[in-house]
Amino acid sequence: MRIVFMGTPDFAVPTLTEIVARGHDVAAVYTRAPAPAGRRGLDLTPSPVHRIAEGFGIPVRTPRSLRSEEELAAFQDLAPEVAVVVAYGMILPQAILDVPELGCLNLHGSLLPRWRGAAPIQRAIMAGDRETGVAVMRMEAGLDTGPVGLVERIPIGPDMTAGDLHDRMMLVGADLMARALAALERGALAFTPQKAEGVAYAAKIEKAETRIDWTRPAREVHDRIRGLSPFPGAWFPLGADEARVKVLRSTLADGAGEPGTVLDDALTIACGAGAVRLLEVQKAGKQPAGAAAFLSGNKVPPGTRLA
């Protein structure tokens, strides 16, 4: 089929790669404009999708808005049968949604209608969900409200981080979208409206959510740590200079004490109920390190009280 692909981050790269491998005609790739990089922000860095598209020799477009008559006309000129959207990062106006004959398909990282919105992977883990998935949805004007064509369920392991789940989802999602396109081409892709019950919104992660609150139960602390790992990262201040220490991996542990108290030589920290053991941390300006390596260069003896 003739396809326009719209995506930006690493998460979208396997889907584009799979679409090309399946022999579809990708008329153009739309992605976010190159972002400033470098210490002074003078260098412009193309998105991961931009780079892979150029490698395939596919024309790349980076409009800052799709709402102008000029952009609509340019999109129409591509004459796509279908548009595939994966973490594009821009809202598609109704006029754009109406162009492809077979609609616009979005790959979304949740079991819709649970976790519509910007941060479905992180929110699922932070909420303690034991299962999530990827869904192929036909887009409409509402926020992730369109009918669903295909779903693949993915279990969330007890110590799985958002990074782990992201990497699993992007591969499963690429295969799911390829299967959806094959079914669509045969006229065999049926869409089911989302249920009105069970709607949850995955709001963008705010900075205020990232500091660890040791007074919360250990399960909540652990879920927040893994749901925010590796980015933006749950953190706590350490030492007189209150240097930020980001926690990248943790696990539930035995132990009890005043919240924030270091209970042993293995970075087990008491919470409001129960305890968590910090397995991998990263001090500001340093590389990630396991607990033993971190403790060899930082004094955090048992009895230390973390803020």
Rank of each mutant, 00 (worst) to 15 (best):
Met126His: 03
Glu70Arg: 14
Glu81Tyr: 07
Arg116Ser: 08
Pro93Ala: 12
Ala119Gly: 05
Cys104Ile: 01
Asn106Phe: 07
Leu78Gly: 04
Glu69Val: 14
Leu111Phe: 11
Arg116Trp: 13
Asn106His: 09
Leu102Glu: 08
Tyr88Cys: 02
Gly109His: 07
Ile91Trp: 05
Arg116Ala: 08
Ser110Cys: 09
Ile96Trp: 08
Arg114Thr: 14
Glu71Trp: 01
Phe75Trp: 02
Ile96Phe: 09
Ile91Gly: 06
Ile125Thr: 11
Tyr88Pro: 03
Ile125Lys: 01
Ala124Asn: 00
Gln76Ser: 14
Ile121Thr: 05
Leu105Glu: 07
Leu107Lys: 12
Gln76Cys: 14
Cys104Gln: 11
Asp77Tyr: 00
Val82Thr: 11
Met126Trp: 05
Leu97Cys: 12
Val84His: 12
Pro100Met: 10
Glu70Gly: 13
Leu105Asp: 01
Glu71Met: 11
Ser110His: 08
Trp115Leu: 13
Leu97Thr: 03
Gln76Asp: 12
Glu81Pro: 02
Pro113Gln: 09
Val86Lys: 11
Tyr88Phe: 15
Ala127Met: 08
Ala83Arg: 05
Ala119Gln: 04
Pro80Thr: 04
Ser68Gly: 15
Leu72Asp: 06
Val82Phe: 08
Glu70Asn: 12
Asp77Phe: 00
Arg116Lys: 15
Pro113His: 06
Pro100Asn: 10
Pro113Thr: 14
Ile96Tyr: 07
Met90Asn: 13
Ile91Val: 14
Ala79His: 13
Val86Leu: 10
Val86Ala: 06
Leu111Asp: 02
Leu102Arg: 15
Ala83Ile: 04
Gln94Val: 13
Val82Met: 08
Ala119Pro: 11
Asn106Ile: 03
Gln76Pro: 03
Gly103Gln: 05
Cys104Lys: 10
Glu70Gln: 15
Gly117Gln: 05
Glu81Met: 07
Leu78Ser: 11
Asn106Met: 08
Leu107Val: 09
Pro80His: 03
Ser110Asn: 07
Pro113Cys: 13
Leu112His: 03
Pro100Phe: 05
Leu112Thr: 11
Pro93Gln: 11
Pro120Met: 12
Gln76Val: 10
Val86Met: 10
Glu70Tyr: 00
Leu72Arg: 15
Arg116Glu: 09
Trp115Asn: 04
Arg114Ala: 15
Ala74Phe: 02
Arg114Leu: 13
Gly103Val: 02
Ser68Phe: 02
His108Cys: 08
Asn106Glu: 06
Leu112Trp: 07
Met126Gly: 02
Glu70Cys: 02
Glu70Trp: 00
Ala95Tyr: 00
Ala118Glu: 01
Tyr88Ser: 01
Pro113Ala: 12
Pro93Gly: 10
